[in-house]
Simulated assay, not measured.
Amino acid sequence: MTNENQRSEQMTRLERGKLALNEIDGQAGQNVIDALADIAPDFATYLFEFPFGDIYARPGLSLRDREIATIAALAAMGTAAPQLKIHIEAGLNVGLSKDEITEVLMQMAVYAGFPAALNGLFTAKEVFETLSTE
Rank of each mutant, 00 (worst) to 15 (best):
T123H: 08
Q27P: 01
A73R: 07
E67N: 12
F50A: 14
E89W: 02
I55F: 09
D54M: 07
A76R: 06
K85H: 10
F114G: 00
M106S: 05
T102E: 05
T130E: 14
D34T: 10
E49H: 01
E49T: 08
A112C: 10
F52V: 04
N119S: 14
S62K: 08
T102V: 12
L105C: 07
A116H: 11
F43V: 13
L92H: 03
G26Y: 10
L84A: 03
Q10R: 14
R66V: 02
V94K: 11
R16C: 05
H87G: 01
M11P: 01
A124K: 10
E49D: 15
P51A: 06
A20M: 15
E4Y: 09
A117D: 00
P59S: 15
F43R: 06
N119C: 12
K18D: 12
P82G: 07
D38F: 08
G29S: 11
N3W: 01
T133H: 11
M106A: 14
A35E: 03
E9S: 15
Q83F: 01
V110M: 14
M108D: 00
R58M: 04
P41T: 08
L105T: 04
D99G: 11
E15C: 07
A44D: 01
I101P: 00
V127C: 02
G120E: 03
S8A: 13
T2M: 09
L118R: 13
L121C: 04
A75C: 15
E89T: 13
H87A: 06
E103A: 14
A76F: 04
Q107V: 07
A116Y: 02
N119E: 09
P41H: 12
N5R: 15
N31F: 02
E100G: 05
A112E: 05
E134S: 08
I68P: 00
I101M: 03
S132C: 03
L131Q: 14
L61W: 06
A117E: 00
G60M: 04
T2Y: 06
A112H: 11
D65F: 04
I71S: 05
L74M: 09
E67D: 05
E23R: 15
A109M: 15
T130N: 11
R58L: 12
N31Q: 14
T45P: 05
E23C: 05
Q83C: 04
L36G: 06
T45F: 01
G78T: 13
L121H: 06
L14T: 14
A28M: 11
D99I: 11
T102Q: 09
A81C: 08
L47K: 02
E49Y: 00
Q27T: 13
R13Y: 13
V104S: 06
E4L: 14
E134G: 12
T70I: 11
F50L: 13
F122T: 14
L92W: 01
G113W: 07
I55G: 01
V94P: 06
T133R: 14
T70F: 03
L14C: 07
L92Q: 03
V32P: 00
F48P: 02
P41D: 07
A20D: 02
L96R: 09
G53E: 06
E49R: 13
A76W: 05
R16H: 05
